[in-house]
Simulated scan of single mutants.
Amino acid sequence: MLKPFERKKYNWLVGAGEEYKWQDTDLKPIFPDNVNILNGEELLQFINTDVSQYIIFTDLKAFPIGSHILKIDKYEEFIKSDCELILLSVDSSYTSIYCKDPKLLSELYVNMESLKVDKLSYITDENDFRSTVIVR
């Protein structure tokens, strides 16, 4: 889903979530309980696509390496922050991506089209139902 985004160039703030992977004939959490910030390499290790994964809900925020990482709850905070991308997924099927870079946003959109995603659309002020940019 984030293929066009250079995930290794970022530190990732891991918010609330319920994410599992199939391991040793059982479901195990993707992220350890005590982890809330991952560098890009660590994130890629945890979200290894070689195993089946089940995302109930997730909240990931990407900050350029060396930038200030802070908790972001509202869209206005996202705009003012160093955060470049927010990935929110709810109920295993509703995913929202907020991205500051218009060119990259277009590339993400094209990638999602290639994955044949249902009901793909841009989030705008007119159609954004969220009052926050977090999942609970």
Rank of each mutant, 00 (worst) to 15 (best):
I69K: 03
K103W: 00
E126K: 12
E18Q: 13
K21P: 01
S114T: 09
L104M: 13
I123F: 09
V133I: 13
W12H: 02
L44H: 02
N48Y: 10
D26P: 00
K119L: 14
N11I: 00
N36T: 13
V51K: 15
V110I: 11
K119P: 08
E84G: 01
S131Q: 14
C99E: 03
S92L: 05
N48R: 10
D128W: 14
M1F: 04
F63E: 06
S114E: 14
G17V: 02
K80L: 11
D128L: 15
R136K: 02
I123Y: 12
P32T: 04
W12S: 03
D73G: 08
F129Q: 05
I47Y: 13
C83P: 01
S93K: 10
T124K: 12
L85F: 09
F78W: 07
E126Q: 10
D73P: 00
I30N: 06
Q53P: 07
S81P: 07
T124Y: 14
V110S: 04
V135Y: 00
W12Y: 03
I55V: 13
H68F: 05
L60M: 09
D26F: 11
K103R: 01
K9N: 13
F129K: 08
Q23T: 12
N48M: 06
Y54K: 15
K61H: 07
E41D: 11
Y98A: 01
S96R: 14
N11C: 05
T95W: 08
F57G: 14
N39Y: 04
V133W: 03
M1D: 02
Q23Y: 11
I65R: 08
L60D: 00
N127D: 13
W12V: 05
D101A: 05
N36I: 06
D128S: 11
I123N: 12
K8C: 02
C83R: 06
E19F: 00
G40V: 05
I69S: 07
Y54D: 08
S89E: 15
T49N: 09
F46C: 10
V117D: 00
G15P: 03
I30L: 12
S106H: 13
P102D: 07
V14A: 02
E77K: 04
E113C: 10
N39T: 03
E42D: 13
K100G: 06
K28S: 15
T25E: 15
L13H: 01
S89K: 10
V14L: 07
K74G: 00
P29M: 13
N11G: 00
N127W: 15
F46Q: 15
N11E: 04
D33P: 12
Y54N: 09
I47H: 08
N11M: 07
S67N: 10
K74C: 04
V133F: 01
E126N: 09
R136G: 05
